[in-house]
């Protein structure tokens, strides 16, 4: 049973479409990276998972129950960290932790101590006086100390300095390997989460663009450095697997996707060129994923090609 199953969820706020027929699943004991541009619906999707928002169409099933019907027992197994995690700001960190811990029977005080120390949370400060990064780390402590089965993190790294980011990711991996935990991270820090996630769910303008194993997704894309022996490369390539092209008649840099086994050889023969294929990082294929979804396909101006190895 998948901890979260999103089935044809659509949601609009007035005229603005936030989610359009999104179907995805979060497998058990996996770390899912939820990526997308600002306003693509990531936070909205995360809020559907806890039942805070109800879909206009479709259903979200969390821990076996429709999210709308999540009861206290199920909520106690979920840990949530909101992007703008704000709490009652007059409480100090310690008071807040005591207050929140009173709602969970599985609260682990030892873990709380360890996490506050590891994340350098000064629990004696008032929440309202904490900097955004500090609040974020406190929010992570509050979300994790009751040993949840499902951890939903909305931009947990956005306000943290580079060292704190690494600490948080190490911490998540540690908890992941100790508990039977499923983590969903929504983040812009693609470089940071790439080694940590094993599945990617990508949204663009409310629609699902990708829901796949992260290695498999990346292996669909490649960068080709094409060198022509005759100096006769065309300025545009109409092969279906070419996403973007950049360069002149002698050398070109192509971004390709879903290349079949024979396509490369045929391409080399057709253009009398040699191909050097390189893999791409998540950050490099991200613009392609989102560009494709909005139907831009190949840009007019090759120089504006959607981002290969900046």
């Amino acid at each position: 049973m998948n901890p979260v199953e999103i089935q044809h969820v659509s949601k609009s706020f007035g005229d603005a479409v936030a989610l359009a027929d999104v179907t995805a699943a979060v497998p058990r004991h996996s770390i899912v990276g939820l990526i997308g541009r600002n306003g693509s619906g990531k936070s909205t999707l995360l809020r559907h998972m806890t039942g805070l928002l109800l879909p206009d169409a479709g259903e979200c099933v969390t821990l076996g129950l429709p999210a709308a019907k999540l009861g206290p027992a199920e909520l106690a197994r979920i840990g949530v960290m909101d992007q703008h995690a704000h709490f009652v700001e007059w409480m100090t960190g310690t008071q807040l932790m005591r207050y929140v811990s009173s709602f969970y029977t599985t609260w682990d005080r030892a873990l709380e101590r360890d996490l506050t120390e590891l994340l350098e949370v000064d629990a004696s400060a008032r929440v309202g006086a904490m900097s955004p990064g500090h609040v974020q780390r406190l929010a992570l402590v509050l979300a994790s100390c009751h040993h949840p089965e499902l951890l939903l993190l909305d931009e947990p790294l956005s306000d943290l300095d580079p060292i704190a980011r690494q600490t948080v990711l190490r911490l998540l991996l540690d908890r992941f390997s100790r508990d039977d935990l499923t983590i969903v991270i929504s983040s812009h820090m693609l470089r940071d989460i790439e080694p940590v996630v094993n599945r990617i769910v990508c949204l663009h303008e409310g629609r699902l663009v990708a829901d796949a194993d992260s290695d498999a997704l990346r292996e669909r894309f490649a960068e080709w450095i094409v060198t022509s022996r005759a100096g006769s490369l065309p300025s545009a390539f109409d092969d279906p697997f070419v996403v973007s092209a950049q360069g002149d008649a002698h050398r070109a840099r192509l971004l390709v996707r879903d290349v079949a086994a024979t396509d490369a050889a045929r391409f080399e023969a057709a253009h009398d060129a040699a191909i050097e294929a390189r893999p791409l990082t998540l950050e490099q294929i991200f613009p392609v994923l989102t560009q494709q979804a909005s139907g831009q396909g190949r840009p007019r101006d090759a120089a504006e090609a959607g981002g290969v190895a900046r």
């Binding site: 809020r47 806890t50 805070l52 206290p72 027992a73 909520l75 106690a76 979920i78 949530v80 909101d82 703008h84 995690a85 704000h86 709490f87 009652v88 929140v100 709602f103 969970y104 929010a139 509050l142």
Partner: peptide
């Protein structure tokens, strides 16, 4: 006033049995 302030935070939604208490 204090109760409503808590309930206006998104962090309060997923506290188990908050409203009941």
């Amino acid at each position: 006033v204090n109760r409503i302030d808590l309930q206006h935070t998104t962090a309060s939604w997923h506290l188990p049995a908050l409203r009941r208490r």
